[in-house]
């Protein structure tokens, strides 16, 4: 099978090529603005994972797994969870678990004055995005192993 035969038609591939970057960017936007506008780590993480799933649907699983392999997704997921826990534990320096320990926080009209909340959002985004992608990849891989039998 030729490389271009995998995945969907040329039309879908072209549109995907145009939109996938925008979807990824939108996901990052949702994550970074999560503490002041609707959205946050979970929603942004889902959108970022969707951009990779989009690639997988249009170009076939090998192409997407080359960009982000199963092992890398699992690694990122664990790092996200550990980062979240690390942020929570860092609050202990101020005396409380999960304390928002930054000093210059809560200034109006400043994007990054929310202390640990954007950091938590990034951690959640890693966990959710990588987790969702890994689940999707696992379902696809499981399906193909059934076909081979």
């Amino acid at each position: 099978m030729k490389k271009s035969d995998k995945g969907m038609t040329l039309i879908v591939k072209t549109i995907t090529r145009l939109t996938v970057g925008l979807i990824l960017l939108y996901g990052i936007y949702i994550v970074l603005h999560g503490h002041i506008s609707p959205g946050g780590g979970f929603a942004g993480g889902v959108i970022i994972a969707l951009s990779f799933i989009h690639l997988m649907l249009a170009f076939g699983k090998e192409f997407a797994l080359k960009k982000l392999s199963q092992a890398a997704a699992s690694l990122l997921e664990n790092l996200g969870a550990l980062m979240f826990l690390g942020i929570a534990l860092a609050g202990l320096t101020g005396g409380y678990f999960f304390l928002n320990f930054f000093i210059n926080k809560g200034k109006p009209f400043t994007l990054f004055s929310a202390g640990i909340i954007p950091l938590c959002n990034i951690a959640i985004c890693l966990k959710v995005g990588a987790g969702l992608f890994a689940i999707f990849a696992a379902l696809i891989l499981f399906d193909s192993s059934q076909e081979n039998k």
Partner: peptide, 21 residues
Amino acid sequence: MTVLSFYVVIPLGGAFLISLL
């Protein structure tokens, strides 16, 4: 008093460290 949070933190941290390593 901080010890109260450890009952959740230790197994949670353990879970992800094990999965990582």
